[in-house]
Amino acid sequence: MIFTKIKRTVKSGAISFWRNGSVSLASVLILTVTLTVITMVLFSGVVLSSTLETIKNKVDIDIYFVKGATEDSILSFANEVKKNPDILDVKYTSRDQAYQNFKERHKDEEATIQALTEIGDNPLPASINVKAKDPNKYDSIVTFLKDKETALGNNNIIDKINYTEKNQQAIGSLNRIINASNKLGILIAIFFAIVSILITFNTIRLAIYIFREEVSVMRLVGASETYIRAPFVTVGILYGLVSAIVTTIILLPITHYAGNWTEKLGTGMNLFDYYRANMLMITAALVVGGTMLGAISSFLAIKKYLKV
């Protein structure tokens, strides 16, 4: 019997969805806008986080060594530096490598390359590049490096530590801005979600209001609350399901357009690539969110008309 009931409910819901096409269309449109807005707000959060990560990754410390420093002494110094728990990575660039890199970087600038050749000797120093695990730790890392430099005494091989506090300050304020933006983004997402849910709820309530007379007839022929409610909830689920599929499709051109834009802005990501890579998960979330929204709205909206 339970199978028969489920079959009847699904059939009745699907028929109602189809036969009341205009009501279904309006509800699906509202739900689609809701899901699209919420997804876009969440996407903006992802873009902001990626931007912050990109900028954080651009901050580093370069340590240049005197010309006479041997590779062994530099590598031994680099190994010492690596032991600091705040340091993520240390990369060594030899003088020859630096020379090659320079030539590669300026290969189209004939005058520069010519000037380099005229010098004869390789003027570029060897260096190590230091990256911190947390950008807020650069200050303490610089202090640590300077202490190391002092400790070397007469055997000092360091020529220059290239790091300015201004970088740190800029990163700090950017960090704060992006954190604040993220918090604001979450608030906006919550606000939009609440507004959209209310609009969806009211749209479905309006759709069910049209059927209030029918609900009272159903009650009078002895249909139970569950039996009346189930097809309406099924229709709500169908609204959500169709909206989720439509939203998934709509997001393709939106993210495609926004993808180039996010890449050019230096956010460190292409929104379209991100969407494609996570499409299955996002679609699943949209389907779950959409059907829940549709079902809960219908469930609550029908309640009012069941008191006959």
């Binding site: 019997m1 009847r8 159903m218 022929v221 249909a223 039996y227």
Partner: peptide, 10 residues
């Protein structure tokens, strides 16, 4: 519908 509501079989 009246029969379905009463739980009658198909």
């Amino acid at each position: 519908f009246a029969m379905e509501a009463a739980g009658m079989d198909d």
